[in-house]
Each structure stands twice: as structure tokens, then as C-alpha cells.
Simulated scan of single mutants.
Amino acid sequence: MMTNLFSVFDPSTTILNLSLNWLSTFLGILLIPTSYWLLPNRFQVIWSNILLTLHKEFKTLLGPSGHNGSTLMFISLFSLIMFNNFLGLFPYIFTSTSHLTLTLTLAFPLWLSFMLYGWINHTQHMFAHLVPQGTPPVLMPFMVCIETISNVIRPGTLAVRLTANMIAGHLLLTLLGNTGPMTTNYIILSIILTTQIALLVLESAVAIIQSYVFAVLSTLYSSEVN
């Protein structure tokens, strides 16, 4: 019996006094196609097409001023988050993306590096971003405050959005999973099972969408400082 609903997100579970839960973050590496085959299989072809599509998408978002090879960073970010989101849907695998420890570790250094690069190399451009074009002179001080606050909270919103979406879906699946064994009515049990399958499909979609949103927003923040 689960004593606490949030214990499924507890990272302190130990095996032989070793906290091995965070190793699930690196399990996605096992799913990446290896380059040791002479002829590519279907999985490699599909994955290559996905990466090429993402590269074109991020290249468009970065614009002509984007640095060559910078899309590789955002594609890697997308892959890491997506693999972790998917692996968290399997039983007994720790979902590292449901913790701010990981999501903030990804979001904050990215945002900080963009800000430092922008303010050091394009100072006038960054100041111009604080006051949107066409703002009346009376509202300019307020717009500077609003834009500054929205800039500062960006890493927090990136991290919390991903964490909250992962926690919400997993909590619903856990609640329905705990209700099933206590149900004696077969009709209610079939409804719970159908709902769980539908939720699992929805969570699979959320796993892809949230990793894509995280990568796209990071790309947009990067394009703003160029």
C-alpha cells in the first residue's frame, strides 16, 4: 500500500546505499541507434529523418544570424528530454524530468549563457528588446519592468512547465492504478482500464510535445539575443 501519493517521485530510494534512481536519466543513450551497422535499419532511417526535420525547424527559428551547428545543441536537448519522458512511463523507472533538479539544471545554464552572450555582444539590441516598438513614452518605464520580469522568470517557466506536465500525468495514472485492485465491479474496472490506456496514449503524446516545446522555446530565446 502506498503511504504517500508523491512517493512515486521520491529520488531518495537506495539500493545498497547507492542512489541509483538518477541513472534512469542516461538510459535513453541505450535507445540511440548505433553507427556500427554497415546498412542502416528502419529505426536508424526514421531517427535520421526526425533529426533532419528538427534541424530544419530549428534552423528556421534561429534565422540567418544563427551560428552554424547550434541546432545540434537543441536537437540533443530534445532527444534527452523525450527519452526521459518516455522511459518514465515504464513501470519502476524513475522519471527524472518530473524533478526541478534536472529541468532547472537544463533551463538555467541555457538562459544564463544566452543572456551573457546577448548583453556582452549585442548590448544595444538587448536594451531595444526591453521597450517594444510603438510603446507610448508614458508606458516605457512600466514596459521595461514587465519585460525584465518576463526575462528573469524564463528559466523557471521552462523548468516548471515540463515538471508539472510530467507530474500531473503520472499522478493520474498512479491514482487510477491504486483504485483498480480495490474495485470489485467489473464494469467500473473496465472503465478504469480504458481510461488508463487512454491516459497512457495521452502521456506518450505529452512526452513528445513537452520535449519539443522545451527545445523550441530555448531556440527562440537564443534567436532573440542575436
Rank of each mutant, 00 (worst) to 15 (best):
M2Y: 07
M2A: 10
T3H: 09
T3R: 06
S7K: 06
S12M: 01
S12E: 05
T13K: 13
L16Q: 11
N17Y: 03
L18W: 08
L20K: 01
F26P: 02
L27N: 14
L27Q: 13
L30F: 12
L30M: 13
L31S: 10
S35F: 07
W37F: 06
W37D: 12
P40E: 15
P40M: 04
R42W: 12
F43P: 00
F43I: 14
V45M: 07
W47D: 12
N49T: 01
T53S: 14
L54N: 08
L62H: 05
G63S: 04
G63Y: 11
G63L: 07
S70F: 03
T71R: 02
L72I: 11
M73H: 09
S76Q: 07
S76P: 01
L77A: 06
F78G: 07
S79A: 10
S79N: 12
F86G: 09
F86A: 10
F86M: 13
G88P: 01
F90M: 14
P91S: 04
Y92P: 00
Y92W: 11
I93M: 12
F94Q: 02
S96A: 15
H99I: 01
H99V: 01
L104M: 15
L104N: 07
L104D: 06
T105Y: 13
P109W: 07
W111P: 04
W111G: 03
S113I: 07
L116F: 14
L116E: 06
Y117Q: 08
T123L: 11
M126V: 06
H129P: 01
H129L: 12
L130G: 01
P132C: 01
Q133I: 06
T135G: 02
T135C: 05
V138A: 08
V138I: 12
L139I: 04
M140E: 09
P141E: 05
M143Y: 05
M143E: 05
C145V: 15
I146F: 10
E147W: 06
I149P: 03
S150E: 13
V152L: 15
I153P: 04
I153V: 15
G156P: 02
T157H: 10
A164H: 13
G169A: 02
L172Q: 11
L173Q: 09
T174Y: 08
M182Y: 05
M182R: 08
T184Y: 07
N185S: 13
Y186I: 07
I187K: 04
I187T: 10
I192K: 03
I192Q: 04
L193V: 05
L193R: 11
Q196H: 01
I197P: 00
E203F: 11
S204F: 10
I209H: 07
Q210N: 10
S211P: 00
S211Q: 01
Y212Q: 06
F214Y: 09
V216Y: 04
V216R: 15
V216H: 09
Y221G: 11
S222T: 11
V225N: 06
